[in-house]
């Protein structure tokens, strides 16, 4: 069996062998359902999932680091990194295996929100295509979030530090794309720079996919983000394996 696959299997099982997965799923499903209802999911009388998807980035800023922080910090803390990296698998196989397992776990979490679209389809006549691209966008976005979390998990053996660092970086990347931030920035920055900041943020790319427009640049943004941060993680682990 390929090294990545072995690590993937073990990692995924470990989520469900501990209460981590269940606590996470319950909290995530509660908030991802509660927030749209609070904002008037029924009152706006529109058969779409825009409210649901628009809450995801902010929810992920806190929830994704929770799953990502343990990826490597825990290995370092318990010393099992020494076991893992003396098995005949490469560092990049181990990193990809772990990252893909956490990504798969988050995709499961997102798929468990399926009662939401089912309700909408039952009640109204929504654009199913937009819902599907919305989910596709969420999968890609959560992958990007996880890649960043995975990187910050690899630089320290302290899970709290890794959590705080990834929340900070993720917030910057999310808030940079908010209209309020952009308005403020445009008061003193040249227009070119403001739009550069906007395209660096998750939000603009996620929103255009979620509206049903699948463009190469948005997909490429997330793929490059994932590959870039994971590569950085591999470099860090190759350089510094102990503590």
């Amino acid at each position: 069996m390929n090294g990545s696959l072995a690590v993937f299997k073990r990692e995924l099982k470990s989520y469900f062998a501990t209460p981590v997965a269940y606590v996470f799923l319950v909290i995530f499903l509660f908030f991802s359902g509660y927030l749209p209802f609070r904002q008037g999911f029924f009152e706006i009388r529109q058969a779409d999932m825009r409210l649901f998807f628009s809450n995801l980035p902010l929810l992920f800023v806190f929830m994704v680091p929770c799953t990502a922080m343990r990826l490597w910090s825990e290995e370092r803390k318990s010393g099992s990194i020494e076991l893992l990296l003396t098995l005949p698998i490469t560092v990049s196989q181990a990193v990809w295996g772990k990252f893909l397992a956490s990504w798969f776990f988050m995709i499961i979490a997102l798929l468990l929100t399926i009662p939401m679209p089912i309700t909408i389809i039952y009640l109204g006549n929504p654009d199913v295509g937009a819902m599907l691209t919305g989910y596709l966008g969420s999968f890609l976005m959560v992958g990007g979030f996880l890649a960043i979390g995975c990187f910050f998990s690899s630089i320290t053996k302290n899970q709290v530090i890794s959590f705080i660092l990834s929340v900070t970086v993720l917030s910057i990347l999310v808030y940079a794309g908010m209209p309020t931030t952009l308005n403020y920035l445009s008061s003193f920055l040249p227009a070119g720079m403001v739009s550069a900041i906007e395209t660096m943020s998750f939000l603009s790319h996620f929103e255009s996919i979620q509206r049903g427009v699948i463009e190469f640049k948005d997909i490429a943004y997330f793929i490059l983000l994932i590959i870039g941060w994971i590569y950085a993680c591999i470099v860090i682990l190759n350089e510094r394996k102990v503590s």
């Binding site: 099982k13 501990t18 318990s78 099992s80 076991l83 698998i89």
Partner: peptide, 23 residues
């Protein structure tokens, strides 16, 4: 390795099977 690191939440059987997977 020193202190025999392993994955605490796994059973002995699944741990050894994981090693077999990797090897």
């Amino acid at each position: 390795a020193e202190n025999a690191p392993s994955y605490d939440e796994m059973t002995v059987g699944s741990f050894l099977n994981f090693i077999c997977d990797c090897r």
